[in-house]
């Protein structure tokens, strides 16, 4: 099973990025192998609109099962929901801390977006 974390850096000690759509990078962590890869979100960071939608597509195509991030807007949530990706919101400061909370079962699954959309 793969987990996606939004991050400002490139390893488990990096800060968790509170934004989803315009997150700097995604750290995709494989729970079985404990290996991870970094997916750059540079293209969506600069998108004029629809960054959340594109980011959701990007992690869906990476085969992710769950997303752990600070905030997720309504359009991104719709794509994630359609792709069957569970969303967990957290205020953890690093990826490692967010992973620990997920593994400890202290994060609850979001049933809706936790922030408003930016345009519509």
């Amino acid at each position: 099973m793969k987990l996606a974390f939004t991050t400002l850096g490139e390893n488990l000690d990096s800060p968790l990025d509170p934004s989803f759509g315009r997150a700097r990078n995604f750290l995709v962590y494989d729970v079985q192998t404990q290996a991870f890869e970094i997916i750059s979100n540079k293209q969506n960071l600069d998108a004029a609109q629809g960054a959340g939608i594109q980011s959701a597509q990007l992690i869906a195509k990476a085969g992710v099962h769950a997303l752990i991030t600070g905030h997720c807007g309504p359009k991104a949530f719709r794509v994630l929901d359609a792709a069957g990706i569970k969303v967990f919101n957290t205020d953890a400061s690093t990826v490692k801390e967010a992973l620990a909370r997920y593994c400890a079962g202290t994060l609850s699954e979001a049933k809706a977006a936790n922030v408003e959309g930016h345009w519509a």
């Binding site: 998108a47 004029a48 609109q49 629809g50 960054a51 939608i53 594109q54 959701a56 597509q57 869906a60 195509k61 719709r78 794509v79 359609a82 792709a83």
Partner: peptide, 12 residues
């Protein structure tokens, strides 16, 4: 304009 999204499915 990122108005369509898909993941090997019918686009949203």
């Amino acid at each position: 304009f990122n108005a369509l999204a898909s993941f090997c499915s019918t686009p949203l």
